[in-house]
Simulated scan of single mutants.
Amino acid sequence: MKIAMINGSPKGGATNSGFLLDKLRPLLPREAEISTYRVGPKALKEEDYDELYRTDILVLSFPLYFDAVPSHLLRMMTEMEQRRPVDESQRTIRVYAMVNNGFFEGDQCKLAVNIVENWCERCGFHFGTAFGHGAGEMFSSLGNVPVGSGPLKNLGFALEHLVHSIRSGEHAEPFFTQPKFPRFLWQLSSTRLFWHGAAKKNGLKPKDLRRRPGIPPIRLSPPENDVKR
Rank of each mutant, 00 (worst) to 15 (best):
I3Y: 05
A4W: 05
M5Y: 04
I6T: 07
G12Y: 01
T15L: 10
T15H: 07
N16H: 09
S17W: 05
F19G: 03
L20R: 03
D22T: 08
S35L: 14
T36K: 14
R38S: 14
P41I: 15
K42F: 02
E46P: 02
E46F: 05
Y49M: 04
D50A: 13
E51W: 07
R54M: 14
T55I: 13
D56G: 11
I57D: 01
L64H: 09
D67S: 13
P70G: 15
P70S: 12
S71F: 06
R75I: 10
M77L: 15
E81C: 10
E81K: 11
R84V: 03
D87H: 13
D87Y: 10
Q90S: 15
T92Y: 01
V95A: 05
V95Y: 00
V95G: 02
M98V: 06
V99W: 05
N100Y: 04
N100F: 05
G102I: 07
G102F: 05
G106A: 07
D107F: 11
Q108Y: 05
C109P: 03
C109N: 10
A112D: 01
V113R: 05
I115A: 15
I115L: 12
E117A: 14
C120I: 01
E121S: 11
T129C: 01
T129F: 00
H133D: 08
G136P: 01
F139Y: 10
G148M: 01
G148S: 02
S149L: 08
L152K: 04
N154Y: 09
L155C: 08
L155Y: 01
L159N: 04
E160F: 08
E173K: 15
E173C: 10
F175Y: 08
F176T: 12
P179H: 06
P179F: 06
K180A: 13
F181I: 04
P182W: 04
R183Q: 08
S190E: 02
S190I: 09
T191K: 14
F194D: 13
F194S: 12
H196G: 09
K201L: 12
L204G: 04
D208S: 05
D208V: 04
R210N: 09
R212S: 12
R212I: 13
P216K: 11
P217N: 00
L220I: 11
L220T: 09
P222R: 13
P223T: 08
E224K: 15
N225K: 14
K228Q: 12
R229L: 11
